[in-house]
Design a protein around this nucleic acid. Structure first.
Length: 361
DNA sequence: AGGATTTGACCCTA
DNA sequence: TAGGGTCAAATCCT
C-alpha cells in the first residue's frame, strides 16, 4: 500500500509539473513533450494501480453489477477513496484550466468504449471531426456526470395566454436514446455555485419542480438544434442530499460540430457483459463526482450497472478508469487516452482549444 | 435586434 | 390522473 501511495504521489507530482509547464508555455508547448510527460505520469499511476489492484483482488470483486446500483457496496472502494484523498491533498481539488471538466464525460465514455466489445459505429465528418452515429439499439447505456447550471432566478416572466397553441407535435418521453448521468461538484464562482461547463453550449428550455425534490430540474437542449438539428439534451438538478453536487442527465447525441469532443455515448451501445463486468468497483465519495453507467432495457427501465470516477484530474481519472474498467485491457490505452484528453477533449470553449486552436482551423 | 431565459400551460406516459 | 417533459409568449440580456 505504501508503495502504491508513493507511486500515486509521484504521479501527482509529475502531473503538476506538466501542468505548470503547460501554463508557462501556453502557446509553445511541444506535443512530444506532452506525450513524454504523460507517459511518465501514466507509468507512475499504472504502477500504483497494479499494486492497488492486487491488493483489492484479495478482498473481493464480484463481477456482477446488479441493477441496484450498489451505492453502498463498494468493495475495495476504501483504497480508492484513500487514493482520491491523496490526489486531493496533493492539490488536485481545484479544476485546472487545462483539465477542463469538459473532459470528464469524454473520459468516462472513452473508458467504456475501451471496455466494450462491440465496435462503435463512427464516421468521419468532412471537417475531420468525428461524428458518432445515433444508436438504434434499444438497449443503451448512459453514464452519469455533470455540467453547468445556468444562473437561476433572473426576472424573466414568460407568461402565455391560457388559450394559446394549437396542436403539439409528437412528443415522447420514453425515447430509447442513451442517457448519460453524471455528477459534478458545483464550481464556485463568486457567491454562487454552478456545475462545471461541459464544453457544449446549451439553451435552457424549461424548469420544473420535481416531486420530492428540494431543487428544481432544469432542461437544456443544444443551442445548435436549429442549425444542425442537434438533438442533444440534458437535465440538470442539484442533489437533495448534497446541494453542492449537480446531477446531469445527458440525452441524445450531439450532431453539431461545435465541439471537438462529441460525447461518444453511442459507442457505448450495445450494453454487454463486457462493459458490465469491466466496470469494477463502485466508488462513491463526497469529494469525487461519479459517472454512472445506466442500462436501459427495451421497456425503458433503467438500472445502474456501474460507477467510475470522473471528476478528478484527467490523469487520475484516466488511470483509475483504466484500472476500473479494463483490467483485461491493461496497458493498452493509457498513453493514448492521456494524449486524447490533452489534444482532443477540449471543447469549443475550452482553453485547450485556445491553445491548439490552429489544429482545426 | 436577436438570442437566451423564465415560467405557466400543454401534452404524453405510467 | 399525476407527474414529468416540452412548448412558446413574455421578458431579459447583450
Amino acid at each position: 500500500m505504501d508503495e502504491a501511495i508513493t507511486n500515486i504521489l509521484e504521479g501527482c507530482k509529475l502531473a503538476r509539473e506538466l501542468e505548470t509547464s503547460i501554463m508557462k508555455q501556453v502557446f509553445n508547448i511541444s506535443p512530444d513533450y506532452l506525450m513524454k510527460s504523460s507517459e511518465e505520469i501514466v507509468t507512475a499511476f499504472t504502477a500504483a494501480m497494479n499494486l492497488l489492484t492486487s491488493l483489492n483482488s484479495s478482498l473481493h470483486v464480484s463481477s456482477s453489477m446488479g441493477g441496484d446500483g450498489g451505492e453502498g457496496g463498494s468493495h475495495g472502494a476504501t483504497s480508492i477513496i484513500q487514493a482520491l484523498n491523496l490526489f486531493q491533498s496533493a492539490g488536485f481539488e481545484q479544476p485546472s484550466m487545462f483539465f477542463h471538466p469538459t473532459h470528464y464525460p469524454r473520459v468516462a465514455s472513452e473508458m467504456a468504449t475501451v471496455s466494450a466489445v462491440a465496435t462503435p459505429v463512427m464516421e468521419l465528418g468532412g471537417s475531420g471531426y468525428v461524428n458518432v452515429l445515433e444508436s438504434t439499439n434499444p438497449e443503451v447505456i448512459g453514464s452519469h456526470g455533470g455540467a453547468r447550471l445556468t444562473p437561476e432566478g433572473s426576472s424573466g416572466s414568460g407568461r402565455r395566454p391560457a388559450e394559446s397553441t394549437g396542436q403539439r407535435s409528437t412528443r415522447r418521453r420514453r425515447d430509447n436514446t442513451e442517457r448519460v448521468i453524471q455528477r459534478f461538484p458545483a464550481v464556485r464562482t463568486g457567491n454562487s455555485e454552478m456545475p462545471p461547463d461541459d464544453g457544449y453550449t446549451w439553451r435552457k428550455y424549461g424548469q420544473k419542480d420535481i416531486l420530492g425534490c428540494r431543487f428544481p430540474r432544469s432542461y437544456f437542449r443544444c443551442t445548435h438544434k436549429n442549425y444542425y438539428g442537434c438533438e442533444a439534451k440534458k437535465q440538470v438538478q442539484r442533489l437533495d442530499e448534497d446541494p453542492y453536487t449537480y446531477e446531469v442527465v445527458y440525452c441524445g447525441q450531439h450532431s453539431c460540430l461545435t465541439s471537438t469532443t462529441p460525447l461518444l455515448i453511442s459507442s457505448l451501445a450495445p450494453v454487454n457483459t463486457a462493459v458490465t463486468s469491466a466496470v469494477a468497483p463502485i466508488i462513491t465519495s463526497a469529494t469525487a463526482s461519479s459517472t454512472t453507467y445506466v442500462a436501459t432495457n427495451p421497456r425503458g427501465e433503467s438500472s445502474m450497472i456501474g460507477t467510475t470516477l470522473s471528476e478528478m484530474t484527467p490523469s487520475t481519472s484516466i488511470h483509475l478508469g483504466n484500472w476500473l474498467t479494463s483490467r483485461d485491457l491493461a496497458d493498452t490505452r493509457p498513453v493514448a487516452d492521456m494524449a486524447d484528453v490533452l489534444f482532443n477533449s477540449g471543447s469549443s470553449s475550452s482553453s485547450m482549444d485556445a491553445i491548439f486552436y490552429s489544429k482545426h482551423d
